[in-house]
Design a protein around this nucleic acid. Structure first.
Lengths: 145, 145
DNA sequence: CATAAAACCTATTGACATACTAGGTAAATA
DNA sequence: TATTTACCTAGTATGTCAATAGGTTTTATG
């Protein structure tokens, strides 16, 4: 049930871009420094996000990335679905028709379908803007759980 | 976010034992045949479950396993916590103190804590008996999603 | 036009986890 | 004593994870 570094880093990277929205194109170098993540590794995560219209890019001097849309337009579910491949706890809950001979008579299938549903409902309900807002509310400096 | 075969097989094995409750000790051979899972692999899952008081065992002729408690006493969360090691989406949500220098100022931590919470709430709420009941209700033979 | 800075692309790697298989030993019953 | 079962330990092929490495292309600026 783990979220990989790919998904977690992608979220932090987009959050970093959301925080620095309005400052022009942000170089990966700066995100890497602020987030303490290898720039080379971030480079590999970018193309995954670019499979959709998440980012605007400029190459060359003064180049970098910026969010293509408003932070409220990005849900955590969207981001993780891209980077994790899927949010499904088992493969069969997102297939139709289900590629498993037992599925028609499987007592556990509803359990996985239900788990899939609650995970999606929760993550669909959180946007980059939501995360930014609750972070500001708590105060960036005395933010303790 | 995947549940491994270990977790899925453990759930099916315990569900099989719940279905055949009252029939004495059930041999692994029979569970393996009914569930179409390698008996050798099930043998490896058993000791994980035996770390708690989940099962009663008898060796030798007519030996096998039976549930140590009522099916309503086993939650899916309990079973998966044993076999998966943890249900946490990221390591830091189950540590205290958190072993991450960024945790005090991490905007994403509440997201993972919330995800952890909804997953636990959902899986804590389902017992083997619940699964059996809803399976019976739908009718074992025309059980279609 | 040359240079520097950035994105972009492809390959490789070490470590670890997954999903088993294999072969044996110990205990209990008939 | 033979059979049937659980129990134990090791091995293994495959894949995924989490990066690192080394280059090419594009673009603004001096």
């Amino acid at each position: 049930m783990r979220i990989s570094t790919k998904g977690r880093y992608a979220l932090r990277m987009l959050l970093d871009l959301a925080e620095h929205r309005g400052e022009g194109y942000i170089a990966l170098k700066d995100i890497a420094r602020r987030q303490e993540i290898s720039k080379k590794y971030l480079e590999q995560i970018i193309p995954i996000l670019n499979r959709t219209d998440f980012l605007k890019t400029n190459r060359g001097y003064q180049g970098g990335y910026m969010l293509a849309k408003d932070p409220a337009q990005y849900t955590v579910a969207d981001i993780l679905r891209l980077t994790e491949g899927s949010l499904a706890p088992v493969a069969c809950v997102e297939q139709s028709p289900i590629d498993c001979v037992r599925s028609a008579d499987c007592p556990t299938l509803p359990v996985w379908q239900g788990l899939y549903r609650v995970v999606n409902e929760y993550l669909d309900g959180i946007t980059l803007q939501d995360i930014l807002d609750s972070y500001q509310e708590r105060g960036a400096d005395n933010y303790v759980i």
